[in-house]
């Protein structure tokens, strides 16, 4: 396996990951959003596997498999069940329209490339090109959490942030210690379950899952 092939494979995966992040942002249907998230996680698992393989770090195989199992299959499945039970097929509602959020997203990508470019702070041994991608994924997640109205979209935004941080850990430090990595997966899974439960509670109490209906508490 030549180094040249490896480099182009990594570039390719990075591009696909960025495209998947954009896909999550522009999807106008909640179902498409979840599928885009699953794709994003799938690419993340692939990248983890490639890192593990090229750097001969065996313990990274476990996070790769867990990402594949949990974030690509289990969590999207949970989400689909939730929206089926809630009976929502409607469009994703946002405070800003999709072209504008796309514009913001492009800006965020530029910022993250600029801020981490030229090895300003961080000079990892390999895979340096993933750092701006990871940071822009975190930015995208935050953009989604602040601009989307539906409670479910906010949870997806949180998961997107988590994906970005995972990518960061994988490429900068070749993953956290296995114990910590497992703990984080556990927390994410529990968080999705609990937030899913709360989405139903919100639906029952507020007759809808618009987070901006929740304005009882002030001051």
């Amino acid at each position: 396996m030549s180094a040249e092939f490896m480099a182009s494979l990594i570039h390719f995966l990075g591009m696909m990951l960025l495209i998947a992040s954009f896909w999550i942002l522009v999807s106008s249907q909640i179902g498409a959003c979840i599928r885009a998230y699953a794709t994003h996680s799938f690419l993340l698992a692939l990248i983890t596997a490639v890192v593990a393989w090229s750097q001969h770090i065996e313990h990274l195989i476990i996070p790769a498999l867990l990402t594949l199992a949990l974030k690509t299959i289990v969590i999207p499945h949970v989400f689909f069940r939730i929206i089926r039970r809630l009976g929502i097929r409607k469009e994703v509602e946002s405070y800003i329209n999709i072209p504008f959020s796309l514009l913001l997203a492009v800006l965020l990508v530029f910022i993250s490339f600029y801020a981490t470019g030229e090895g300003r702070f961080l000079k990892p041994a390999a895979f340096g090109e993933f750092i701006p991608l990871a940071i822009s994924t975190v930015f995208f997640g935050m953009l989604m959490m602040t601009t989307r109205k539906k409670a479910i979209s906010q949870v997806l935004g949180l998961l997107l942030i988590e994906n970005g941080l995972f990518l960061m850990a994988i490429t900068m430090t070749f993953g956290m210690p296995l114990l910590v990595e497992m703990g984080i997966f556990f927390d994410v899974l529990i968080a999705v379950m609990i937030m899913g439960l709360f989405v139903f509670k919100i639906r029952d109490a507020f007759e809808g899952i618009d987070a901006d209906d929740m304005t009882v508490l002030k001051g």
């Binding site: 959490m145 409670a151 949180l158 508490l217």
Partner: peptide
């Protein structure tokens, strides 16, 4: 209650983002 759910939801979301 409505207000408790709202409080718990804000708590979950804001603290999770902070923690990330």
């Amino acid at each position: 209650k409505k207000s408790s759910i709202e409080a718990a939801w804000k708590y979950l979301i804001l603290c999770s983002v902070g923690i990330s």
